[in-house]
Simulated assay, not measured.
Amino acid sequence: MKGHLALIGAAWLMLTGTNLVVAAGPEEIRIGQTLPYSGPASGFGAIGRVQEAFFDKVNAEGGINGHKVKFISLDDAYSPPKTVEQTRRLVEQDEVLMMFGSLGTATNGAVHRYLNLKKVPQLFVLSGATKWADPKRYPWTMPGSTSYDSEGVIYAKYVLATKPDARIAILSQNDDFGRDYVAGFKRALGDRAATMIVAEQSYETTAPTISSQLSTLKASGANVLYGVVLGKFTSQAIKGAAEIGWKPDLFFVPTSASSISFLEPAGLDNATGLISSSNQKDPMDPQWADDPGVKEYFAFMKQHMPNADAGNANHATGYHHATLLMTVLRACKDDFSRENVMRQAASLNDVKLPLLLPGMSATTGPDDYLPYQQLQLRRFNGKSWVAFGGIMDDR
């Protein structure tokens, strides 16, 4: 029976294989995406909205090498089964050339193998899970973020340097997103992890609240909180800690949780002192007021999204990743085959982007799919994120 099923599977691959690599139509480049426009992480929907406006602008200016872009961004509500449904629709019905900038570790993981079997580029995944940068096993997938593991290392390095006697509590999402962050953090603490970490709690993305976890962590006597939280749980962690009178000396949240849209529901006063990191310029930071890249971003927002909050980090993130994809698409010239898209994406050489921090660039190779490997720490001052220290990396 097993042999019979294997033959059926092989036959299916042979039948579908002839259709695996399809060039874009002569006049249109179809780009697919799934994002949570509803559900607990709906704040990230701003990324897709700004990218839709970005590609509308590109089309109004003549497209890419004469080809118009059809950008199709669908709601997956941050639910893996919905991601599968929407991705299959985009690939099999809308016949997109690629998937681009879809959000989430579990959601992208649900379509990871499918897209690689179909040989559909899964470009610049908005997740820092280490598994996206695996060109040998998954050559059609490329991350768009610094890895969570590396980000965790950087936070741990800061704790060791500034508070070596810390009592650390860890709150993490119970999935690959949370596990990667915690693994990097513990790796950098090394042998000291066993004594410095005094409590650990996790939560499910389906949970209504995380109040019991916060109470348990506070009771441990921890004075440092490493919060691997996302979406509404970012707001709950910040507000919940304040409500129980817990003000850790150091409170970390991931780059992906640092949008003002997640801080506002928690109360900006409660968020003051939070530490995160970034490889992007914060458009609201006065130090970038005269920066050409930031000016370019604000001009775009004023003209193409006049009613949107240009200070929302998710808008800046969407714009940032769209400029990266433009670099790849322009390099394709007139060959918009899926193979050439991946070839160009894996050939980025010291690419400077408008919103990348000075000294940082995007670089990839056939054996190295991580476009970014550096970060800078930043602290929330009640109004905006302020960078401090120098550029750090996982070394």
Results as ranks from 00 to 15, higher is better:
175 D>K: 00
4 H>P: 00
84 V>A: 09
124 F>Q: 10
200 E>I: 06
371 P>A: 09
212 S>M: 04
365 G>D: 11
299 A>I: 00
185 F>W: 07
335 D>S: 01
276 S>M: 10
339 E>C: 01
390 G>P: 14
64 I>V: 15
374 Q>W: 04
26 P>C: 00
61 E>S: 13
224 V>A: 06
182 V>K: 12
95 E>H: 14
50 V>W: 03
200 E>H: 07
74 L>F: 08
228 V>T: 13
164 P>R: 10
125 V>A: 12
75 D>S: 05
74 L>Q: 10
7 L>H: 00
10 A>C: 10
168 I>R: 03
44 F>W: 09
55 F>M: 14
69 V>I: 15
95 E>G: 05
45 G>M: 11
193 A>Q: 07
80 P>A: 09
85 E>M: 06
87 T>K: 01
359 G>V: 08
56 D>Q: 14
104 G>H: 01
28 E>V: 09
33 Q>G: 05
242 A>V: 07
79 S>V: 12
191 D>A: 15
128 G>Y: 00
314 N>E: 12
21 V>P: 00
275 I>N: 03
165 D>C: 08
275 I>R: 04
102 S>Y: 02
102 S>R: 03
271 A>Q: 04
285 D>M: 09
110 A>R: 00
219 A>G: 15
75 D>A: 04
263 L>C: 11
329 L>I: 07
238 I>P: 13
277 S>C: 14
20 L>P: 01
38 S>A: 08
204 E>R: 09
317 T>C: 08
272 T>R: 15
381 N>H: 11
115 L>T: 10
333 K>M: 04
153 V>P: 00
12 W>T: 12
186 K>D: 06
383 K>D: 14
268 L>K: 14
118 K>Q: 13
203 Y>V: 12
234 T>E: 10
96 V>D: 07
227 G>N: 13
100 F>W: 05
184 G>T: 02
217 L>D: 06
65 N>C: 07
127 S>H: 02
23 A>Y: 00
182 V>F: 07
218 K>Q: 14
162 T>G: 00
151 E>R: 04
199 A>H: 05
153 V>D: 05
8 I>Y: 02
379 R>P: 00
182 V>D: 01
172 S>K: 12
367 D>T: 14
60 A>K: 11
300 F>A: 14
174 N>P: 01
69 V>W: 01
312 N>A: 12
16 T>F: 06
302 K>T: 14
148 Y>C: 09
322 A>H: 01
304 H>W: 14
263 L>P: 02
276 S>R: 02
94 D>I: 08
54 F>D: 12
372 Y>L: 15
360 M>S: 09
280 Q>G: 05
178 G>I: 05
216 T>E: 12
304 H>E: 14
151 E>C: 03
248 P>D: 02
236 Q>A: 13
374 Q>N: 11
218 K>T: 04
358 P>F: 04
393 D>L: 08
135 P>A: 01
291 D>F: 03
298 F>C: 06
86 Q>V: 03
